[in-house]
Amino acid sequence: MKPNENVMNHLSDELLSERLDGLLDVAAQERVDAHLAECADCAARYAGLRQVQATLRALRQVEDIPDFRLNAQGRPRRLRLRPESSRPSRGYVFARMASVAVLVGGVLLLFVAIITGAGSLTLTSHESAANYSNAAPASQSYPGCTTMHCPAVGTPLPGNNDGAVKTPTMVPTPVGGQSNTTFAPLKPPAPFPSPLAEFGLGMLLALGGLIAFLGFGRRERST
């Protein structure tokens, strides 16, 4: 390696670091030393590394090393300088995450309960009414009422083109000699679990998760 090349191509910090630790082979060390003798920039960088290493070695000297031996029961002899809770354990982190999961699950359940509850209301108050509105007189009752009038006994209700009667049981009962028919109460299949139960469970989970989350957060802040 020519002198000019030595100066032009600066040494990498990794090479200088290895030179500092004496890990280069003889040939490589000679080349590095020759470069350092000619290149002031690399020499300054190398000298800086020497200063850093020398100072770091001085940091090894620490006074008053505590006694970390254990007692006969295998427990520390010395008292903690910081409360245990200041160092969150893995169990603590897991509990915090679990509380978040419960909170999120409860909120999702609330949403589901609200959506299913609204859908149930829509079905009973609007869709059923639409199905029967063409045939039923103004005085008829809709699902949930005790009687219902229909102009054709045992035939599909108008407006229900697929021929299927939505009521689970249809019991024709003549009323006052008229052609109207009284049906048994229409009971739409109740969703399970009911929206009310879902709502209650969701509220319970959300509140529990929120309290647990806030409780853990308060414990963390207190430390």
Binding site: S12, D13, E14, L16, S17, E18, L20, R45, G48, L49, Q51, V52, Q53, L56
Partner: peptide, 11 residues
Amino acid sequence: ARGRARLRDLL
């Protein structure tokens, strides 16, 4: 090497 160089540059 990177740690030492960073300390040196700061110094």
